[in-house]
Amino acid sequence: MASALDPRFKLKYVSEDNRGSIEDKLTAEMKSLINEMKNAPLETAAMAPDVTEDAAAPKKKKKGLGSFFKVTTDKTAGPLLQQDHAIALELQLYLQTETLDAEEDPLKWWRESQRFFPRLSNLARKYLCIPATSFSSERVFSTGGNIVSCSRSSLKPDHVDRLVFLAKNL
């Protein structure tokens, strides 16, 4: 999914069979990110210490007999459909733009294109800023290689694990 957010590659190396599922995952991730951003201010407001329970609780309105026979409509369906359409449109516009040169910086491109793709840029910032290195695991393996040598090849795996742990944590 992260490669789809890289403007240098997009879906270039993805088979036709997997494109639909990747697009679905991207739209679902954008929806969840939007919901997280919407809920974040509410959580911080609920944690405010100066708000008392009596002042924060709204008063209930008395219902008349006619209110039981009203037909209610779902007012949230309209904005949700518009949001889904906007997300799908933003994703399709992004996929139709030209791919970036392989030598260009994708984070710089997202910074410049943030106003055109606001939801996708938040998602790209989330996934593209993860460093793709494995230095720590390589160091552990090299330490294990230093411990297990020709003269110490008969060490049991438990002893090797303990020696590597001690070498890395002391």
Rank of each mutant, 00 (worst) to 15 (best):
V140C: 13
V140Y: 09
T76S: 10
T72L: 09
L95D: 02
W109N: 07
T133N: 14
N169A: 08
G66I: 05
S153M: 12
T44A: 14
V164A: 04
L120W: 09
P118A: 05
T44E: 14
P49N: 13
E112D: 02
N169D: 12
M30Y: 12
D74P: 09
R115F: 00
S149Q: 11
Q114D: 13
V140M: 15
V160K: 08
S15H: 03
G20V: 05
T143Y: 12
C129L: 14
R152Y: 04
K59R: 15
K156D: 10
C150S: 06
R111S: 09
Q114K: 12
A48W: 07
F117W: 00
L42P: 00
I147H: 12
A2E: 13
G144H: 08
S113W: 03
R8W: 14
S154A: 12
A45N: 07
A46W: 05
P41S: 02
K25P: 00
A77H: 11
Y94P: 01
A88H: 04
T52V: 00
L163C: 07
A88P: 05
M30V: 11
R19C: 11
P118H: 07
P131V: 01
K10Y: 09
D6V: 04
D54I: 07
N122Y: 10
F116A: 11
T133H: 07
W109D: 06
F68W: 09
V148K: 14
N39Q: 13
P58H: 03
E98N: 07
Q114V: 05
V51M: 10
E16A: 08
N35I: 10
C150P: 06
V160M: 10
D74Y: 06
A46N: 07
D24P: 02
A28L: 13
K126G: 05
D6N: 02
Q92K: 02
K12A: 15
F117N: 01
S15M: 01
E16Y: 02
W110R: 04
T27E: 07
Q83R: 10
F69G: 03
L128E: 02
S21Q: 01
T133E: 11
F135V: 03
S67C: 05
L91V: 06
S137L: 15
T76P: 00
S67R: 08
C150M: 12
T52L: 00
I147W: 04
A55K: 09
A2Q: 14
A28F: 08
L128Y: 03
K75Q: 09
Q92A: 01
E138F: 11
A102Y: 12
E103F: 08
F117E: 00
T44R: 08
S3T: 07
A57D: 04
K31F: 14
F141W: 06
A56H: 03
G20L: 09
K70I: 00
L81E: 14
L128I: 02
P49S: 11
S21Y: 02
L170T: 13
F69L: 11
K61T: 10
V14C: 15
A86E: 14
